[in-house]
Computed example of a mutant assay.
Amino acid sequence: MKIAVSACLLGENCKYSGGNNRSERLLSELAKHPEIEIIPVCPEVAGGLPTPRPPAEIVDGEVVNNCGVSVDAEYRAGVAAEMARLKPHIESGELAAGVLQSRSPSCGVHEVYDGTFTGRLIPGQGLFAEALERGGVHLLDAGAL
């Protein structure tokens, strides 16, 4: 069994700020199941975005950073790259789930920022979460752990 996990939750410094969202609780749960293969994912880095980078939000269906610059192409390229990498695991049924970082324009499972850069949340999903769900992958929001 395999699980795709946002790399930032595993402690990889790929978050927009240059840091990570290391989740000790997640790591502890995963350590209890050595039979699970973890596949780290970060569509933003896979799309060629640097770390650190300006924060981005979804504005009218387009990913834009807080400088007003569209980074939609990079986000969508990263989603495509990560989905291509996961495709064999999805098609074989080996990929049991995805554990994704909350609120991210890539990985948000249940809600994302509203595009005003004010911290306001709205119901919705990030681009990568949407793609995984369309692929039949069960999603878990890291904030629900």
Rank of each mutant, 00 (worst) to 15 (best):
G78R: 02
V109D: 08
E130P: 14
G98M: 06
A46T: 07
V5H: 02
S28K: 10
L140M: 15
A46D: 10
R120S: 12
E111G: 09
A80R: 07
P52C: 01
Y75A: 11
V137T: 06
E57H: 00
K15Y: 14
H89F: 13
L145F: 04
G119N: 06
Y113K: 01
E24T: 09
S106F: 02
L132P: 15
P88A: 01
V79T: 06
F117L: 06
R85F: 04
Y75V: 14
Y16I: 05
G126W: 03
I36D: 03
E74A: 14
K32L: 04
H110Q: 10
A4H: 10
I38Y: 02
C67Q: 13
P55T: 04
V109C: 06
A142S: 13
A77Q: 11
G115R: 01
A96H: 07
E111W: 03
R25Y: 12
G48L: 15
G124H: 04
P105L: 14
V63L: 10
L100I: 13
N20C: 09
G143C: 10
T51C: 01
A56C: 11
V63C: 01
A81L: 00
V79G: 05
V71Y: 09
L9N: 03
G61T: 11
T51W: 10
A144K: 04
R53N: 07
V59T: 00
G115C: 05
D141Y: 06
A46L: 09
V137S: 07
R53S: 07
A129V: 15
P55Y: 13
I36H: 13
G143N: 08
P123K: 02
V64H: 02
P55V: 02
P50G: 00
H138Y: 07
A131C: 06
N65M: 05
G136W: 11
G11C: 05
S17Q: 06
A144V: 08
A80N: 04
P54H: 03
Q125I: 00
V137A: 04
H33N: 11
G115T: 04
C42Q: 07
Y75L: 05
E111F: 05
R134Q: 15
A131P: 09
